[in-house]
Structure formats: C-alpha cells, structure tokens
Design a protein around this nucleic acid. Sequence first.
DNA 1: TCGTGCATTGCACTCACTGCAAAATTTGCA
DNA 2: TGCAAATTTTGCAGTGAGTGCAATGCACGA
Lengths: 197, 197
Amino acid sequence: MSASDQRRERQKAAKRHAITLTAVRLVLDKGLDAMTVEAISEAADISPRTFFNYFSSKDEALQMRPSWSAVSLTALFQDRPADEPVFRSMRVVAKEIADSFVPAREESELWRELWRRHPELLAKRSPEGEEEIFRSLILAVAERTGTDPMKDSYPSVVVTSAFSVIQWAVRFSWINEDGRTTADLIDEAFDLLERGL
Amino acid sequence: MSASDQRRERQKAAKRHAITLTAVRLVLDKGLDAMTVEAISEAADISPRTFFNYFSSKDEALQMRPSWSAVSLTALFQDRPADEPVFRSMRVVAKEIADSFVPAREESELWRELWRRHPELLAKRSPEGEEEIFRSLILAVAERTGTDPMKDSYPSVVVTSAFSVIQWAVRFSWINEDGRTTADLIDEAFDLLERGL
DNA sequence: TCGTGCATTGCACTCACTGCAAAATTTGCA
DNA sequence: TGCAAATTTTGCAGTGAGTGCAATGCACGA
C-alpha cells in the first residue's frame, strides 16, 4: 500500500467520522424521525448516494466504529499466558471491547446525550461481524482448554455470557451516571460469573 | 370479551399462522431473496396491504410467536417457592422460554429446515418486548434477594446471562442435530453458570 | 500534461411500510 | 329473514431506504 493510499484511508475514515458526528447532532437537534438519509446528506454536504458509499445502512451512521476485529480480539486472547485461567483472559478481552465504546473526550458528552435520549441505539449490535467473533473466540477457548466445542458447552457458555454482560455493562454505565465505569461493572459481573450465580 | 370476540381472536391467530407457514414454505422453495411481501401475499391469497394487518414487518412472518409475555414469565418466577435459590427459579423460566421455540410436531421438520438453511433467522430477537421482559425479571430477582438493582449487579447479571445462554441453547440444538435437546443444553449451561466459570 | 484510478453524483428502479378511505364481509339483533 | 353496525380487506398514493449503473469530477504519478 502506497503512501497516498494510506492518506486516502485516513481521509475516508475522517470523512466517515464527520458524517457520523453530523448525524448525531442532527438527531439531538431534530429527533430520530427527522434523521432521513436526505437530511443527513444535506447537513453533511454530500449527495444521498454518497452517504451509502460510507455506510451500508442508515443506522450504521449512529454507531461507533469498533476498533477491533475478530482476528485482533482472538489474538489478544491467544497471547495471554497459557496458564492463565480462561475466564481471566476473557476478562481482558471484555475490557478491550468495552474500551471501544469510549468516544474521544470532546465527543463524550455528545454520545452520552445521544444514548441517554435513545438507549435503543446502544442495543443495536451488528449481527454479521459478531457471529464471526463468537465463533473465533469459542474456538480459541476450546483450544486452550483442549475440548471440543461441539460436545463441551463450556467454551460457548463462557463466550456467550461474557458478551452479554459486556453489552449490559456498556449500556448501564452510559445510561445511568453513577460513579462506576464500564470497566468497574465488567469487573463486578465477571466476579459474579467466576464464582457462580 | 364476548364469545364471538374470542372466536375472532382464534380465527385471526389461525390465519396469521397460516400466512407464516406459507412464508416459510416460500423461503424453502425460492430462497430468502424471493420472499417479498408481494410474493408471500400472493401465495397466501391475500392482498399485500392485508399482510401488514397481521405482521408489523416482513421479518415477523418468519418468527415463531412466543406464547409468553413479560407478565406471565415474571409471574412464573414469582410463583416459585420463596426459599428456592434464585438461579434455580431462573432455570425454570429459561425452560419455559425455550419451550416456546418448539413447533407443533407436524411443522417441526419445516422449521428445522428453515433454521438449518438460514440460522440468522433464529438470532433475530424482537428488541421491544425483550427489553420489558428484562426489566421485569430483573426487578423480580431484586425483590427476591432484597437488593437494589441499580446498585447491585447480581440481578442484572443473572437475567442477562440467563437469556444469552437460552439463545445459545435454542440455536445450537436446532442447528446441530446431536442427541441433546434444548432443555439438555440449558441444564448444562446453567450448571456451569451456577458453579462458576 | 496526459492518462489512470478512485470518489462523487444523478438517475432510475425495487421494495418495505403507512395512512386513508372505500368496498366487502361478518355479526348482532329485531 | 333482513337490516344496521362493526370489522376486515383492499386499493391507492405516498415516503423513504437501499442498489446498480454509468457519467462526471478529481488527484496523483509518470
């Protein structure tokens, strides 16, 4: 990849991000219903057609872009010491995921207000990529424990419940503003799951 | 509610169910892409407009209708003996939920084939009702344990992870046909969660 | 400066979904 | 049975998301 290609990447990412911010402000300003693709495009000064060069759906414009992938998360898990308990390693992965929901400082209030007013936006998960991450992590857990994930439910249960509490921790900490951070809640939840319900 | 109103209810439910079966057969026959509202309507011999009298979205026609509600599930939980451990009661609730994914015997093969060919349909949860069930059950757990669900994470973690493993058990048991039933998998998962990961 | 490749855009199209009002049908009741 | 009311079905017109295609604009490197 040439230097100009990298620059293009950065420009594209920046523009995408700018459109997202425009969309978020539009929602806060006029409400969710007014957020048509046409309205966003106009506010962002692009054609409606161009909007879909950046996002594959309207909803995508209101989601934070995850900084990780199935590959990177699995690598993170696999790079943990081999003698570390599986659920400890998973906790590290969980915090990594939660971190990607922390917006840049200047935007923090913007997102918080968006999520406070429209909590359902925090619930929308992208089913495509998620499925891959699940499979990949389940396999990694199975490998570490030397089990067959089609026979032994442990790997699936670990990954499944880990993700569900991550989701809960993220939503809870962004909607209710008590002192606890997302990481705090993840620790509480993982402590409970680790010792048994 | 008068007798004829009840009859209407039954007729409406029956027709709705008939449309669903038509839609499922259409998907198995022609593929998901060919399943337009127009195509379903034609096959079911109703107008496209009428389709939306029965379903609020196209996808809804391919979902099994849950036989429970937030109220009934919460009541089921609350009716368990007061000295039963919370997570035991939750297991009962879980099996009740899983049961609603068991189609009538004659349709069993139809649904299995649909889910085998399009597993993503089993993943689509309805975000509206689900939210209410979560809240309601979390409150019920909090009440039983005498805790404040805004301070103590236990109720949320129990409900959240219970639902996630239910979802996993349903999907797993319908897609992979080994000997284990959904109830078996729920037992395995709950055993793991109960004793700790 | 020219040409290659990528980004932007307009256009035409399909399809999901909705509100409204008319038509068809069912039901309750005299 | 027959009529009026309620309910269901349907047509129609409209909004808005999302897509493929082809033309245009633009930046970069040779």
